[in-house]
Design a protein around this nucleic acid. Structure first.
Lengths: 153, 153
DNA sequence: TATTGTTATACTCTATAACTATA
DNA sequence: TATAGTTATAGAGTATAACAATA
């Protein structure tokens, strides 16, 4: 048995998600090292950039992060001058996040690191296929969640 | 665009691992709810059961968890009477973890929950294929790690 | 000297609940 | 009433470094 292998088990998918998640997190932390932005903050910052403008609750849903964590991320990113809160004309309870010029510069500086990281992964694995598998797993997890809420199991 | 979809992006594999990881963690937390064992502790406890006897460093490698975290998990599981430390004849600096009778009962009580969780997932997705994809991603991540350490990039 | 495992510290994420402001 | 977002608290994981004991 290899030094890093687990014995066969029925719940391997779950434990493997655990393992792989840790491995990917290490890669991401390394990719942002020295940028002043953490891996989690990058998830938020880059998403704001892609959406152009987005409300916190939307980010929470998209990134699967609790709203309270989003609040903290936003406070930190805003405190660092990377994003600003703009009024949300459609809903006065909310606001929209937008990148500042400094935020855009940060995105421009960090993006290439992730692109080359993914390119590196692509040399060793079929990255598109893996992404599809991850999406499928997330969908299945969500489906179970719905089953649980709508049936009497 | 769906309410929970991200715009297209180059580093989707990484962010998707992030999202899927959160989704799976939710499922696992639900599976162990009320058992007195957390999802992370289950990862350790079930691994001890499968190995029959195993050293902490081995667990850290296998589960990709820092040794300091393993120390805490072991302290808690031992404090709850689920595992015991046995002498490691091969290495006096170390010790071997073994399930107690109570630990075995806990494993017997919790295992079915995870089996039915995976069975539920299997109704919605090709669980074996997903597991393979996760293993492939972990291997690619490890390969990059090695590249980084052995080259001058 | 290097490795195994523990402990301590500081920081981060999460769950929960209480709270405001608006819908 | 319900929802968007914030704040406070407590619990848990991680990184880092220092340490004892053994290899």
């Amino acid at each position: 048995m290899a030094a890093d292998a687990l014995p066969e088990r029925a719940d391997n998918v779950l434990l493997q998600t655990f393992r792989t998640g840790h491995a990917v997190r290490e890669l991401m932390e390394h990719a942002v090292a020295g940028t002043g932005v953490s891996a989690d903050e990058w998830a938020v910052l880059s998403s704001v950039g892609l959406f152009r403008s987005v409300a916190p609750t939307r980010l929470a849903t998209v990134l699967r992060v609790p709203p309270t964590s989003i609040s903290r991320y936003v406070a930190r990113l805003a405190g660092n001058g990377l994003v600003v809160r703009m009024p949300n004309e459609a809903d006065g309870r909310s606001y929209l996040l937008v990148l500042t010029d400094e935020g855009k510069r940060a995105v421009d500086a960090i993006s290439p690191r992730f692109r080359s990281l993914v390119a590196g992964l692509a040399e060793h694995a079929d990255v598109r296929a893996i992404e599809s598998a991850l999406v499928e797993l997330e969908r299945a997890a969500k489906a179970l969640d719905i089953d649980r809420r709508t049936t009497s199991r």
